[in-house]
């Protein structure tokens, strides 16, 4: 965990509502599944955003313009400095990936899976990615996953592109382990539809993002955990699904 001042190198729209922001400065390599927490003018609380890509000196996030904070972020221009907490959360455990890892992402749950895919590809693993969207105009990151050499299947709920339906309608027959991130209904469906063990990344409204306020606590089979600190990634076996 570090508090750093980063500078926006680029901030551009990928779709109508989804933006990609690249920040440079004193930031070290982050682990797939970790997040950063950004301080914004006129917002009291920071905005926790998952890491899309990371290398020493540079971090990229992909975020959806949905509320006051992300609206403000979408207007920020290159050269703007931001106070950012980096290296937050546990991230995905890559040691369990096996020979044929499957990545399942829905909407703005997809970004943390990109750095994961990149890292798994660098380890020489074949990676399958199933990416779910509502409709054709909301698709992003498909080509980025393809350029890593991943086998990519896109689904849209309305059938306007890729396979019609949800990610759970497009899961491959064979995979060794899965990693997922997306909206809660999707995560619950993935939990039921998957045959192997896997890891889920959760989101929750956070106060601090670094374990101090207990705002984002959840119950697991291993006791109470903080999504920001012991999470956001939890193993399938530990999760208690609430009705």
């Amino acid at each position: 965990m570090n508090e750093v001042i980063l500078t926006i190198q680029d901030n551009s729209a990928l779709t109508n509502q989804v933006y990609r922001m690249t920040l440079t400065g004193p930031v070290s390599q982050m682990h797939p599944g970790q997040f950063i927490n950004i301080r914004l003018q006129d917002c009291f609380l920071r905005r926790p955003i998952s890491v899309y890509d990371s290398e020493p000196g540079k971090v990229t996030i992909v975020y959806k313009r949905i509320g006051k904070g992300t609206e403000q972020m979408s207007h920020l221009t290159a050269g703007t400095s931001l106070n950012v907490l980096t290296g937050l959360g546990n991230g995905y455990d890559l040691s369990k990936a096996g020979d044929l890892p499957l990545l399942i992402g829905g909407g703005v749950g997809i970004p943390p899976l990109f750095l994961l895919a990149k890292t798994l590809r660098n380890m020489g693993k074949p990676v399958t990615a199933v990416l779910g969207f509502n409709t054709r105009s909301e698709i992003f990151a498909e080509n980025a996953f393809k350029s890593l050499g991943c086998h990519v299947t896109v689904t849209t709920a309305d059938g306007s592109a890729g396979k019609r339906g949800f990610v759970t309608d497009a899961l491959p027959d064979a995979y060794s382990y899965f990693y997922t991130c997306g909206p809660m209904p999707m995560l619950k469906a993935v939990n039921t539809a998957t045959a192997t063990s896997g890891q889920f990344s959760f989101e929750e409204r956070m106060g601090c993002g670094f374990g101090a306020c207990m705002g984002c606590s959840c119950r697991t089979k291993d006791g109470t955990k903080r999504i920001c600190r012991e999470g956001p990634v939890f193993e399938k076996e530990a999760i208690l699904w609430e009705e």
């Binding site: 009291f44 929750e204 409204r205 106060g207 207990m214 705002g215 606590s217």
Partner: peptide, 30 residues
């Protein structure tokens, strides 16, 4: 952290909201 006789998990999430120049919490003594 506020300590009670027995362990407490407390209120369901979301437990955090934002307001102008501040925040609202409903953690509930976890």
């Amino acid at each position: 952290k506020g300590t009670t006789r027995e362990p407490r998990f407390c209120n369901p999430t979301p437990r955090i909201a934002e307001c102008p120049a501040g925040m609202i919490n409903a953690v509930g003594l976890q």
